[in-house]
Design a binder for these strands. Structure first.
Length: 365
RNA sequence: UGGGGUGUAGCCAAGCGGUAAGGCACGGGACUUUGACUCCCGCAUUCGUAGGUUCAAAUCCUGCCACCCCAG
């Protein structure tokens, strides 16, 4: 079978390609360039990654190509990303990137190339049956990336394969080493997918100009100034620049809210009830295998990537859900995704619209 | 202008004759395909300033400077 595989230049997708090749598939590597930016010397930032794709593909013995979805990425992912920040929320661009780019535009490209499947280096497993496809957590619980795939539909998952999903990261690196892949020791990439690690505030400043305002406590006392509400997220500590105060407790300060109407950032010293929430509402949930039976049910959920599963009670409400936590949760943030799990199965998820604070902030009521 | 008080890192703050705690902030790193959180490391050869006493001074003494409070 012909399989198109998205190759990033990293070990995971390299080993994924290798495994598929070993299984006898007609593997075609494709490097996606979705962000146009050059360094100080005018060299494309993605050039080095593409060079790794070339080295690996040659070693494995598969053809490789490059496609450029920059325009689409800007239209479908980045514009949404900026809009959300403008609204005071904290979006997760990578979930959307999977929905719109990797498993949509790229999947269409695979179909055009008459491929029977699309592969990626994601740490996730899928299980096909007569009822459809189920998305399962990766074998390596520390690397599981189903959180980012929770927005995918049956149609998208049906044609997707995740060759490294059943392996441990450690084994993936070993395989890469054994086969002399050039990127075997390459550091895992982080940061926004296709954009990479950035000084986040200054990166946003390039697109969203500063809008300074006051930083105030939950009871409205002035503390400091902020540079723009969109540069901060709930629960954030770093970057507030609030030093010692003779009326303080000596603890750190955290962002607990945003007063959009008055352009005030609400901060609090220490971690208190205002930072925690009891439930959330999500207006639009993608249930991978259809909405679970019953109006309400108990499962686990994550509110951010790499968070231990939390027990929740879900009540389906139209296309969305009301999600009650068994334990109060810290800094659940609108714009981020809530993703549901039933043991190994990723049920789906959706963007968080609002939360019910453990203790409301008077200024925002 | 009298009287009192205080000056220790960017901020808060210990120290009260024996060779500069701690916290916050900040910087770096780890972790991490979002943003965060978290963790680790770093961060005053010097205590407003100029002298003096002492083996030894941020600590005691004196002058000066700055700020604060109370009088007026």
């Amino acid at each position: 079978m012909r399989i198109v595989i998205g190759m990033s230049g990293g070990v995971d997708s390299a080993v994924a390609a290798l495994l598929l090749k070993q299984q006898g598939h007609d593997v075609v590597g494709v490097f996606m360039k979705n962000w146009e930016e050059k360094d100080e010397e005018g060299v494309c930032l993605a050039a080095e990654d593409y060079a790794d794709v070339r080295r690996v593909a040659d070693k494995i013995g598969i053809p490789y190509y490059s496609v450029n979805f920059s325009k689409l990425y800007k239209e479908k992912v980045f514009s949404y990303f900026l809009e959300e920040y403008k609204c005071g929320r904290t979006p997760n661009p990578d979930v959307l990137c999977n929905n719109e780019i990797k498993f949509k535009a790229f999947l269409e490209l695979a179909h055009t190339a008459e491929a029977g499947a699309l592969a990626t280096g994601h740490y996730a497993r899928s299980e096909k049956s007569a009822d459809g496809v189920r998305l399962l957590r990766a074998a390596d619980k520390g690397k599981d990336q189903t959180y980012f795939l929770a927005g995918l539909t049956q149609a998208q998952l049906r044609d997707a394969v995740f060759p490294v999903g059943g392996l441990l990261k450690h084994d993936v690196r070993n395989i890469a080493r054994e086969h002399g892949l050039a990127n075997a020791e390459k550091k895992d990439s982080t940061g926004i997918c296709f954009i990479g690690e950035r000084q986040f505030k200054s990166f946003l400043m390039q697109f969203l100009p500063a809008q300074p305002g006051d930083m105030v406590t939950v009871d409205g006392r002035f503390v400091s100034r902020h540079e723009g509400l969109m540069y901060y997220t709930l629960g954030q500590r770093k970057g507030l620049g609030i030093g010692g105060r003779n009326d303080g407790t000596g603890e750190s300060w955290f962002v607990v809210g945003k007063d959009l109407a008055a352009n005030r950032l609400i901060v609090q010293q220490g971690e208190h009830d205002e930072l925690f929430s009891l439930s959330l509402d999500a207006k639009k949930i993608n249930w991978i295998a259809g909405a679970p039976a019953g109006e309400t049910f108990v499962c686990t959920a994550k509110f951010r990537y790499r968070q231990p599963d939390q027990r929740v009670e879900v009540r389906i409400e139209g296309d969305g859900a009301h999600v009650r936590f068994f334990e109060p949760q810290r800094a659940v943030t609108p714009g981020q995704w809530v993703v549901f799990y039933q043991d190994e199965v990723c049920l789906g998820g959706g963007p968080i619209d609002s939360v019910e604070p453990k203790k409301p902030i008077a200024l925002l009521v």
